[in-house]
Every structure is written in structure tokens, then in C-alpha cells.
Design a protein around this nucleic acid. Structure first.
Lengths: 361, 361
DNA sequence: GTGAAAGCGCTAACAA
DNA sequence: TTGTTAGCGCTTTCAC
């Protein structure tokens, strides 16, 4: 038995309803509404009118089943409450909407297991692609699998060497180096870096011991490079890295400030760390910038409102998100091409948190 | 012709693949996996093993078409970059995920047209329900329509009188009143309020002239109540309200501070406004709290890190989001019941931004 | 307890 | 240009 009953008032109008109202077949109605194939102007108009009259809205679920496209993107970030990711997410949702896509959001708290679970859920929902700020640089099998299975992935903010995916990042090394150079130029020699990394701390002399997020690592390397340039060979004396959820940046800073020869300047690798640095400085009765110069990554709202205003390395947060969306959609809708790696410029914004050290090194 | 071909390696496994592998019918396989109806333990186990072997993941799109449930929630907020909404969104995504739901996110920038468009897109995607911080209190026909059509709506942070929907808010009137009382208790008489409202400014004597967001209005009323309690009848002398995107809170504050008899204390209705107030105070060479006491809604990260630390009315942001999710899911999964209005407590956190005025009123 | 068959709302070959 | 036909992958009566 075919579905020839008339549409009851309560039920939302379906395509057969529209077709019947317009006096055409379902396929013609479908073609007219989706705007493909060829339909006579007359039929097209009748269908349009019928759809309007019935308040017809296409069932995207049914459409997606056929076309294989949901026009939905998945965004996986560490923490939407972090102003950096809030800005990035804003950029993502805006760009996505402008391109006719919606965004499913997931937080990972820098936890790879949570990231894996998120990828699984989002793929179950058949997102057309994934924008991921990966929690780890090496454990990316789930991302590679998604990519291979035709769910394109673009990496945001962070790289993952093994993965043949597009990426949108900033030049963390260069930006950090530049920031530290400014501290050096002001006369500082005892310059600290405070950071939080994904998993394991960077110890003493060498490189990272484990698999932390690449961003932090690059900033640390930029810091070291700048110090070495200035002839400071012992680059790790004032280097303090903690682990998310385990260490508090304020404590790391407090420890630095209690040193016999405390740093005269601190470089914070993001705005939430800078807050900890500021807080510790205050607890030690230190004024910025007279007693302690401070520079941080990320130009948050408060950096230009507090006293003194904080000098920052500003990242183009919204653009980071928007470019990720564009890369992703290009890959979803376009033909295969080699992974592209977009590197956006940062901007150093000089404000009032840098002063010469009180006593020379 | 039935679909009897064997599963090619490239294609993801489907239910027929699993059924064939397990030697049962599709219906049995479906029952075993979804865990309804009755299936013999033996068959259940064979199906489970087959699914595991083939790496089967159910197509949620297909499932949703049948069941009418997508296990997806829509969240419509003003601006994810506002720390308040960032916190709320965090609460929403976490609670949703814990309950087996995903979240589609949309920003409105307090624009009703954008909100309407978002509701339309999200409903097209068949979200099971909507969490909305409505941009306007009266223009809510699109929300009422969604609700009536079986897509439940819960209001977040803001009320909409005409709408028979659940809501989760805080006691804005009481919290504002309490905050202003503390300023009064410190000896202030010239207390300003700076706020940004949805559409039209609140002028002179009366109530709102148009349809701004209820939250701001309630805070203004709380402010007026506290002033009246203290015998200050002229409650609007230092009341300054602007419009989103049009006025800058710093300008509103600058104007106040240029008055012949400037206020000695300012109450900001959210953290982004507080930033403007602080900035204007600095530009006027005023120190907080010696020259100007400051209190604000929302306990953002920076409020406890800046010097002086800012006294705030803290809202339970994550809980606000979580409770909204629970209300919504209860309504989605449960039976019809009268709208419930949850009002959460705020907490006044006393810090260092309030001092007695220099010259008594 | 299990399978056959119908069908959710839509698109896409293919014929006409 | 248009209609017919066949599904997408799954759930779900309804007999057996």
C-alpha cells in the first residue's frame, strides 16, 4: 500500500505532501527544491508555492542519508573556557554558519582518551569533517583513521608530525623568540618561562621527555633560542613547566620568585598562566613592571584593562578558527590535494608590563 | 533484487553485514545491539562478537530517522567569547556528554534575527531540544513554535514571560540589591550602575522603554531597590545603560567620572563591562578602591588575579548550563509536566575593590 | 525467540 | 523535462 493518505494537520509537511499539492512527482519536487537537474520554470514555481504554503522544511536527516553529507562540522578543543579556545570557537562557528554548516562542539581537557571518545561520537553523527586541537602530538591514530575513512581532519593550533592533515597554526617559535628578545632588549638576563604542558614536564637540560602539546614546546624552544642568541647558555635555570590539572602556574612562579637569584622577568605561555604569574607576583609583594616584567601569549580582554596593561603576543584567534573551517570545507567539497599548512602571523603588542630590571644581572 | 552482495573491505560495516556474520536476521541483530525486545543469550553473544569483529558502528542518522531522536541538543547563546557564556557552554557540553548527548552551538550576538535563523537551522537538523539564552524577552514566537512542535526549549539565564518553557536563572534582583547594599554599607551614596542592554536604553525615570534582556533589567531594579532602601530617591542619576555594539562601557563610565559630582562607586552588570569601568578609571587617573570602589557581576579568572582583586557577584556558570541540560533531557525523555523555573544562588565574594568614599556624601 | 516485510523522508538512476 | 523505481541503514509491528 502506498502512502496516499492526505497530510493530517499535526504532522510536518513532507516532500510527498508538497508534490501532491503542486501536482508533480516527488522527484520533480525534490529537483525543484534542491535546485539540481532540470525543472520547467512553471513546475518550479508551483513547487515553491506549495512548499511555502505547507511550511515545508526538508528533513536533513533523510537528505544526509542519501547524500552522505550532514553539513555539520565537529570541533574538538581543550577547553572552551580558555579565552584562546573561546575565540577560536567563535571563529569556527561564525565561518561555518556563513558557509552553511553547523558545529558540534566537544571539550577534551587535554585528555587523549576524551579526544578519542569525542571523535567516535562525532563520527557516529556523521560529521563532514573535524577540526581538532589535538591533545597529543603522537597519539593520533584515531585522527588518521578518521581521515583515511573520508572524514577529513584539520589540525588547529597544534601540529601532529605523522598525520597527513591540513593544519592552521601560528609561528610559535618565532613569536616566543621575539617576545623574549624584547625582555632581553630591556636589559633582563634572568628571564623565566612558565608553562603548562600536556603530559610530562620538560626536565633539566634536554628536549621534552614525553609527548606534550607541540605549541608549548615550540614556545619553549623559541625562548631557549633567544636566550642562546644573547649568550645565555644555561637556558633552563628559570624554565618551569607543569602539567595540566596537576600544577598551578602560581605555584611554579612562587617557587621561581623564592630563588636566591630570582628572575627579573617572566614569560607566560598563555593568558591563564599569566594570571597565575600576576597572582604570585602580588603575593610576593612585587610590583609589575618595577620589580618584575611580564609578557604573555594571548591578548585577552583583561590584558589591556588591568594596571599596568600587559604586553602580549597576540594571536589571531578568530582567524585561526575561520581558516581552519575554510581548509576543511575546501577538502570536504573539493578534490584531493596535498596537505596544506597555514601559518598565521602573531603580533607583539607593547604595553606597560616591561621595564628594565632594578639591579643589572 | 535484495542486497545480498558481501561486504567489500572499504565500506563501513552495516547491520546486514553483522547479521550475516552472526548468522541471524537483521531484526535479531538490531534487537541484540540496541538491547530491546527479547534475544536469546546465544544469539546476543554471536551478534556482539560479529559487530566487534567487523568494527560495526550503528549509523545514527538512520536510527534517528526511525526513532525521531538525534541525541543532539542545540545551544543558542549570545557570545561564546563572553566568559559567562563560555562557562555556561562548558557546563552544557559536559552535562550533555555525560547524558549521551552532543551539542550544536550557535551564537546570536544578542540579535533576534540571528536567533531565529539558528532555531531554524537547528530544528532542520532535528535537535531533540533547545537551550536558549533568548536575545529578547518578547519576540519569542520562534521559540514557542519549536516548543509546540515538540522540540522542547529551556530558557537559560533569562526569562521570557509569555513562553511556557522551563528556565534556569539566578536571582538577579536579589544579587544586585545585595551588591549595592555592600557599597552603601561602606558609606557610598553616589553609586553608579553601568550596563549594556539588548536593544533600547532605559531612560530617565521609568521602566525599560523597549525590550532589553531581562537580566540587565532585573539587576537595574535590584540596584534601584537598594538605593531606595537607603533613602536615595533619585535612583537614576548615576544609571547608565548602553546598547550592545553601539555603546562602549568605558565611554559610559568616562562620562560618569567627568560629572561635577562623580560617583564614588560603580556597579558593573557583567565582567566585560567591569573591564571598561576599570579602563576608564585608569584613564582618569583614579585608583581602585581609594578613589573609586568597583563591584561586578561574574567571577572571571582575572577578577582574582588583578590588583586590587575585584569583589564580585559570582554566578554558578557551569551549574547553570548543567541544570538546563537536565531540565531539557527530563522533558525530552519524560512525560509532559508544568514548566519549572529553577533559580540558582549567587555568591558575593568580598575582595579588595571596595573602600569607603574619600569625602562623605 | 526469531524472521519477513514494511517504511522513515529523501535522492538518484533510468526510462519515457 | 518528467515520472517510475529502487534504495540509504535502520527499527518495528506482526506472524510464526
Amino acid at each position: 500500500m502506498t502512502t496516499n493518505r492526505r497530510k493530517p494537520a499535526g504532522r510536518p509537511a513532507t516532500l510527498p505532501d508538497v508534490a501532491r499539492e503542486a501536482g508533480v512527482s516527488r522527484s520533480t519536487a525534490s529537483r525543484a527544491l534542491a535546485g539540481y537537474g532540470s525543472v520547467s520554470p512553471d513546475a518550479r514555481e508551483r513547487v515553491r508555492a506549495a512548499a511555502e504554503k505547507l511550511g515545508y522544511r526538508a528533513n536533513q536527516l533523510a537528505r544526509s542519508m542519501i547524500t552522505g553529507r550532514t553539513h555539520t562540522l565537529g570541533a574538538i578543543v581543550a577547553d572552551i573556557q580558555n579565552p584562546f579556545f573561546a575565540g577560536v570557537t567563535r571563529g569556527i562557528t561564525d565561518a561555518a554558519r556563513a558557509a552553511g554548516y553547523q558545529v558540534l562542539l566537544a571539550n577534551t581537557d587535554e585528555d587523549v582518551a576524551a579526544e578519542r571518545a569525542a571523535v567516535k561520537m562525532l563520527r557516529d553523527k556523521h560529521v563532514d569533517g573535524l577540526i581538532v586541537a589535538p591533545a597529543a602530538t603522537t597519539e593520533t591514530a584515531h585522527l588518521a583513521a578518521a581521515h583515511a575513512a573520508g572524514c577529513p581532519v584539520v589540525l588547529l593550533d597544534r601540529q601532529a608530525p605523522g598525520l597527513p592533515a591540513d593544519s592552521v597554526t601560528v609561528d610559535n617559535h618565532g613569536a616566543a623568540q621575539d617576545a623574549v628578545r624584547r625582555l632581553l632588549a630591556a636589559g633582563h638576563r634572568r628571564i623565566a618561562l612558565v608553562s603548562l604542558l600536556g603530559t610530562a614536564p620538560v626536565d633539566g637540560a634536554g628536549a621534552a621527555s614525553s609527548d606534550p602539546v607541540s605549541t608549548g614546546l615550540e614556545r619553549i624552544e623559541g625562548y631557549r633560542t633567544a636566550l642562546r642568541e644573547a649568550g645565555l647558555t644555561d637556558t633552563d635555570t628559570y624554565l618551569r613547566t607543569g602539567t595540566f590539572h596537576r600544577e598551578d602556574p602560581a605555584d611554579l612562579t612562587a617557587e621561581l620568585l623564592s630563588l636566591p637569584e630570582p628572575p627579573t622577568a617572566v614569560f607566560a605561555t598563555d593568558s591563564m598562566i599569566a594570571l597565575g604569574v600576576l597572582s604570585a607576583a602580588r603575593d610576593h609583594g612585587l610590583r609589575v613592571p618595577e620589580h618584575l616584567s611580564v609578557v604573555t601569549f594571548d591578548d585577552t580582554d583583561w590584558a589591556r584593562a588591568v594596571r599596568p596593561r600587559i604586553s602580549v603576543v597576540a594571536q589571531p584567534v578568530q582567524e585561526l578558527g575561520a581558516r581552519a573551517v575554510h581548509s576543511l570545507i575546501t577538502r570536504i567539497e573539493g578534490t584531493a590535494h596535498a596537505p596544506e599548512h597555514i601559518v598565521l602571523d602573531t603580533e607583539f603588542i607593547e604595553r606597560e608590563s616591561i621595564a628594565p630590571p632594578r639591579s643589572g644581572t
